[in-house]
Amino acid sequence: MTKNNSNKFSLKPFLVIWAVLTAIGIWISIKGTPWLMEKSASHQMHMAILTVIVFSVAAAPVAAGIYAVQIYALAKWRYKGEGVPPDAEPLRNNVKAVSAWIGVSALLTTFLLIWGLAALASDDNVSGPNPMTVNVTGQQWMWSFQYPIAETLLHHNVESNILVIPVNNQANFNVTSVDVTHGFWVPSLGVKVDANPGTVTTLSVVPNKPGWYDIRCVELCGLNHSAMITKAHVVSDKEFLTWLKEQPASPAAITTSVKN
């Protein structure tokens, strides 16, 4: 068979394609991410958005590199003749290229991991003044919130179907379920944990922006899973106390949440 050695690679046009694609990728990462994602109202959500931006910027040159090769290959190396193309110049291996590729991906992975662990640690160490516990109970298909603080302050139980928490204070959630597994998620606060029957899982968050936020169930829990939505209201300390006092006394805490 005849050898076809005519396929050349010229660096300049390739670099141009790569640079343009990378620039587009980075621009989308920085500008698009905050616009696309839920607005942040806590440290956790802030970290999530920041991490998506950082990872996107890191991934942009890699993805752009692959796309650039594809575009360049299709433009320059496509066989335009009839029938079966002649064999190309064989390239069995290139130890330098392979080592460089693995080395770079190992470096990137190390960076991702270090970033991730640091972000995780900062999420886990979230703390704020006046930590207050809220017992969150999922059941098909509604959420209920109990405020043990009411027993101290008002000597009766308070239970509500919306979540009200004071801004810039630490809220600790004890989450459980009375039937099947639910997923407790406050998107704007960037926190999420499953509500498991017979077990209590915990979350801590310091909301830093007052407002109304959605709470959604994120673990398929049967028929009305998509209707298991309620609201979180982040308010000032004063408003919170007023609200708490307005609530009627509820009969008793749901026992399962303290089973453990």
Binding site: A48, V52, A63, Y67, G116, K192
Partner: peptide
Amino acid sequence: FIIGGVTGIYLSDIPVDNTMHGT
């Protein structure tokens, strides 16, 4: 597969997964 792979990296990161999981 590039897109599938890169988005998988976000999900492997716990602080991001805390918002993305189940969505």
